[in-house]
Design a protein around this nucleic acid. Sequence first.
DNA 1: CGTCAATTCCCGTAGTCTGAGATTCTGCGA
DNA 2: TCGCAGAATCTCAGACTACGGGAATTGACG
Lengths: 247, 247
Amino acid sequence: MSGLSRFLSVLRCFDETKSNWTVQELADRLEVPTSTIYRTVRELSAHGFLEPSTEAHYRLGSAFVEFDRMIRVTDPLVQCGGPLMRDLAAEVGQPCVAVLARLYGDRVICAVDERYNGADLLTSYERGRPMPLVRGATSKAILAQLPARRLRKLLQPAFGSDAKKLASFRTELSNIRKSGYCITEGEVDPELRGVAVPVSSAALGISASLSLIVRANAMTESLERRMILLLVSSASMLAGSLGKAQD
Amino acid sequence: MSGLSRFLSVLRCFDETKSNWTVQELADRLEVPTSTIYRTVRELSAHGFLEPSTEAHYRLGSAFVEFDRMIRVTDPLVQCGGPLMRDLAAEVGQPCVAVLARLYGDRVICAVDERYNGADLLTSYERGRPMPLVRGATSKAILAQLPARRLRKLLQPAFGSDAKKLASFRTELSNIRKSGYCITEGEVDPELRGVAVPVSSAALGISASLSLIVRANAMTESLERRMILLLVSSASMLAGSLGKAQD
DNA sequence: CGTCAATTCCCGTAGTCTGAGATTCTGCGA
DNA sequence: TCGCAGAATCTCAGACTACGGGAATTGACG
């Protein structure tokens, strides 16, 4: 345990399950002496990564909120995509959720989510939530546009040695490349249908996708066509503005 | 340079001004050997705090986005306050911005900002942005509710030895305690008027405030009364649900 | 396949972190 | 205001890690 991982082993303890820890609890959980955790926690607190709450408990601190804002402010994808999303979701004229997601290392993470006024859909997509890499239209539309080498590295751990599944997945991606969009149902959230199109900016090194999610039983053929059209045109606008953007 | 600060000196380089750095640039800026920065950057990347972009440049990584989500998901203030904010902003019936801010260590940081449909106000308030500690209704409403000892420590660095200013500031806070709200104009953003009320939960160790911001020239006496009423009732609802919340 | 920049590796040394226990601080109730 | 219990910090010698300069390797691109 050294360098950053020392600090991360502490930070990773804070999750949905338990967001409030005492030093003693952390020490027990990590099986590290109390005095060591005290030192680590003190340093994390000093830099705003942890904050004291009540009765000797600590929770995640403001530094993360600040850094996230810094990313939102400087990320061309959020800057260019944000305004587009609101219009996009409104244009559908149905309860729906618009999502702009992005490949971040080896995971797909939602960067912007826009709920259409009145949409009470229960999607898993919300900013900052890691998404399954090989399931759902959002992720597939991203993977479909990647260069072969990058793709291979990503799929390796996901499929392991199952050559058959890997081959059929590659076929699926190839179909997305041809048609320009991807539709899936229930792969991430049950009862929901997602339509996604690829978005990318080689100049910025960003691989992303733009998706719309509606209730599966609300989907009609004409709605589907409309959604695809909306997505394709929004995506090309977005790609255009990304091209001009510089960070 | 040791422990966390080694990593932070790198991370702090990434700001609005420049969000995209090469290792060489970082090394020059920090006056540290290149190989050391490479190691630091590698470690930060491995944990998702930095991400390679293009041409040997790096930018802030997805870990911050994920941790921020974790905070949003687990923070009772965001959980209880979020839904309230939308209604609050809508009720005003004027272009306005609703802000829920909070004391985080020694700084006030906005936790939720809700723009009323059609409000194009240029407020500085947005989630994650650090705010001036002693200026603006939002901050003053927070400070007004703090225990004496805590307050003293916070004001020490802000006012230094200027006992006169300190005394008048304390008087101001005392007036807020009596009236239950605070109104300021142009202290943070020119031409804007803010009304704020304190919110707190002793059980959770949270000191916060709820504010509404409108254009100064749109303010009338009756609107002001309405806003104060809305804020006071929202704040008491919020305090109530915070009391029941547990993290 | 060759080129050039980006990145990693190497290794002795310097300096940091570790961990157990003693010590000091702090908040809370009387 | 005082005293108490738990929280937080301090101490110190020894183990281990990071540092830094330069060589070696990788990898992208033509």
